[in-house]
Amino acid sequence: SIKDSVKLCNFNCSQSQGITVQAIDDSRVLLIALKIDAGSFQEFRCDKDLVLGLDLESLSKILKQGNNEEYLTLMAEDSPDNLMAVFEDKKKDRISEFSLKLMDIDSDVLTIDDMETDCTITLPAYEFAKIAKDMKTLSESLKIVVTKDSVKFNAEGQIGTGSVILKPHTDMDKPEESVKIELNSPVALTFGAKYLNDIVKATSLSSTVTIKLTDKSPALFEYKLPSGYLRYYLAPKFDD
């Protein structure tokens, strides 16, 4: 989900935190925070805190070698040069092994404090993905305007304008289809459509996305994982 936004990332491994990643895209506009709790794995062991510097394109090449029904084990030694990936198909007694070279990656770590939020929107992830993709064809920017009754996505481009308005509703049968708006104060923020389209690449990871917006602050787009999260912090565009 994140390999089109960032190329090199440090994966921090620890027994208590599981795997955490913080990465900033090259244009310094988008910050990605990933947390995969130890409980997400069938087995997780980390005797010593470890930083694995990975090239995501290379990692993706290795991960594509496995089939969906195969078990994947990732292993690194104490001061590793390589990450080992072992795929096992227990039915077929098939084992494939790969080793991926690790890299020393210099990266600034930013402190993300808990932010006060003006509003929180939860909507189906596929719905947000469709809006982001459709609106990008109209404009480089997407404005999100939230009031207590609705959230409006607005694009103004060369060929014309477009908007999608969602009103809060609760779907009793399929809660993940609901649209929720929690509002402290109304907000209107503009974001680069390109970055929103990078963010929605995480759509398959979660049925819903939660968007937290605050005036003159980065927006938080959160995809909850079964045990952990993938968060994107996106800096807004400002008027001159």
């Binding site: 600034d108 930013l110 800096a235 400002f238």
Partner: peptide
């Protein structure tokens, strides 16, 4: 078009 801001303006480096 509005100019894009940088994420680092909002979060301090540790």
């Amino acid at each position: 078009n509005k100019p894009q801001t940088s994420i680092e303006e909002f979060f301090p480096v540790e």
